Lab assay of single mutants.
Amino acid sequence: MASQGTKRSYEQMETDGERQNATEIRASVGKMIDGIGRFYIQMCTELKLSDYEGRLIQNSLTIERMVLSAFDERRNKYLEEHPSAGKDPKKTGGPIYKRVDRKWMRELVLYDKEEIRRIWRQANNGDDATAGLTHMMIWHSNLNDTTYQRTRALVRTGMDPRMCSLMQGSTLPRRSGAAGAAVKGVGTMVMELIRMIKRGINDRNFWRGENGRKTRSAYERMCNILKGKFQTAAQRAMMDQVRESRNPGNAEIEDLIFLARSALILRGSVAHKSCLPACVYGPAVASGYDFEKEGYSLVGIDPFKLLQNSQVYSLIRPNENPAHKSQLVWMACNSAAFEDLRVLSFIRGTKVSPRGKLSTRGVQIASNENMDAMESSTLELRSRYWAIRTRSGGNTNQQRASAGQISVQPAFSVQRNLPFDKPTIMAAFTGNTEGRTSDMRAEIIRMMEGAKPEEMSFQGRGVFELSDERAANPIVPSFDMSNEGSYFFGDNAEEYDN
């Protein structure tokens, strides 16, 4: 993207840094990872977990959730003011799984939030270390993106479920800051804005008074975040219109849905970061690795190297396929839920299948599930090659597409044709070009129609051997075009429920 120079890199967003050079960025990201790792080690000690239990991804998720809940100030305040039966607002906890007599047992633990905050700050040299908290939120978000298709949420806001490739980060909490905003897809931002506008339509006082002023500035800020994701002048001009509207209503909703559809071809720039579970960072720190000293990046080879040398386990339900569970977590670790499966298959070195073909449910185990038949197995999170994460949407291309997802959002900077089903997408653009945004709409449609099938995206960008740390010898991959490109292809993934 041309304006790259004016933006802070995501590592800076990730670490609240002012302008830093590459070495400083690597050190501050490393410091953040160190903090998460030290916190995780301490929690495993508190909970008396064995090494194996500490490497269980379900335990990692519970521990991450506990610290996120302990620092969720708004919710904590709300819980104190609106006490609900049987919930102690000062405590947080969740299921911890232990191996007892050759069987997995679930144990519900409860801790004072104050105590968890103390352990977290102690692991982070006394700081609140917001960057580390956001990092864990993005890992949870990436896992949700890989596990669930947001059909219901899309339909509720009037969008087409086939636009799911635009929904990265749709389950990120509001408090995820600049680093969170960077990884949100165009569809996620559109959905947040539509929800806001709908509230304004239904509630006369939404934009009024002292609160209304705050609401208005939040609305304009979200519009600017979305505008910054678009790469064409016409899309940005249309966002200006939406932002400046005196009284946002149905016309703005129409414009936003139009823009979301246009992003299936004229893709937005959305950041991709490899955020790993805390149970990967903990053992690495415990083994003596100093992330701050060595430096770390979320968008280069580092996460690949770390996963190459990590042992992570997962509980497996009786009829689940461990290899499929591994694929789910591998995609989440690489922030690749909406990437082209052919690119992923090449990088991973084994075939990556669409969601609907995987015999696996989510990673988390519900409290009512029976533990008797639970097994555990090693997650295979290694890769054959590594590639640089991208934040450009890439230019655009036609490809055989599917009944489910009709476009992709690249996660890796790797040369390819970008699949999208042009006739299906263009069919949504018939007729409606009147109104105050008509010239911009016409211009956007013209650009979409001009998108050429034979153009290559990320020209000359390749993948790298894991021994090639400096990215000196790019390998331009070859793809098996007979395979499906979309992950949520004609899909039956479970729906995400809060």
Rank of each mutant, 00 (worst) to 15 (best):
I57V: 15
M167Y: 09
T147P: 04
V183E: 10
W207I: 01
H135R: 10
R175C: 02
E14C: 10
Q398H: 14
F458W: 15
R106L: 08
Y40C: 05
P322R: 05
I445S: 06
L379A: 02
D101G: 09
M167W: 07
S367K: 14
A332Q: 07
N473Q: 15
D290S: 09
G86I: 00
A336Q: 05
A123Y: 02
C223D: 09
G17L: 01
R384W: 04
T437A: 13
S274V: 05
R391V: 01
N334R: 00
N483I: 14
S310T: 14
Q311L: 00
I444R: 04
R446L: 04
G86K: 14
P477W: 01
L315Y: 05
A234G: 08
A153E: 07
N125I: 09
N250D: 10
S377A: 11
P423Y: 04
I316F: 05
K214P: 00
A278V: 13
A131D: 05
P318L: 12
A286C: 08
R26F: 13
G431K: 03
R204A: 04
N211W: 09
S9V: 00
V100S: 10
R384E: 03
G295S: 03
G93W: 11
S407D: 03
R175K: 15
K113S: 11
R118T: 11
L226H: 11
E380H: 07
G460P: 00
D34Y: 11
A218W: 04
V67K: 07
E210R: 07
E455S: 12
R267M: 09
E220P: 03
K305R: 15
E443M: 08
M371H: 05
L276K: 14
N334L: 01
D290N: 13
E254N: 10
I444A: 05
G268N: 12
E495P: 10
D101V: 11
Q235E: 05
G180N: 03
R236M: 08
S457C: 14
F39E: 04
M66P: 05
S84T: 13
M1W: 12
S335K: 02
A27H: 14
Q231V: 05
S467N: 09
H324L: 05
R152Q: 11
S402P: 06
A442L: 12
L193C: 14
A233D: 05
E369I: 06
E192A: 03
A131H: 14
G94C: 05
E292M: 10
N205W: 06
L56G: 08
V109T: 12
G187I: 10
F39D: 01
V312M: 15
Q4S: 14
A234S: 14
Y40T: 09
I25L: 04
R118P: 06
G393V: 09
K351R: 11
F346W: 06
P83M: 11
I301H: 13
A179S: 12
S310H: 10
A153F: 08
N498Y: 01
A323I: 14
G300C: 07
M137K: 13
D372M: 10
E455N: 14
E80W: 07
G394R: 09
G362K: 07
L79A: 07
K227R: 08
E443K: 09
F479W: 04
E80K: 08
Q235T: 12
S176C: 11
G177N: 04
D372S: 11
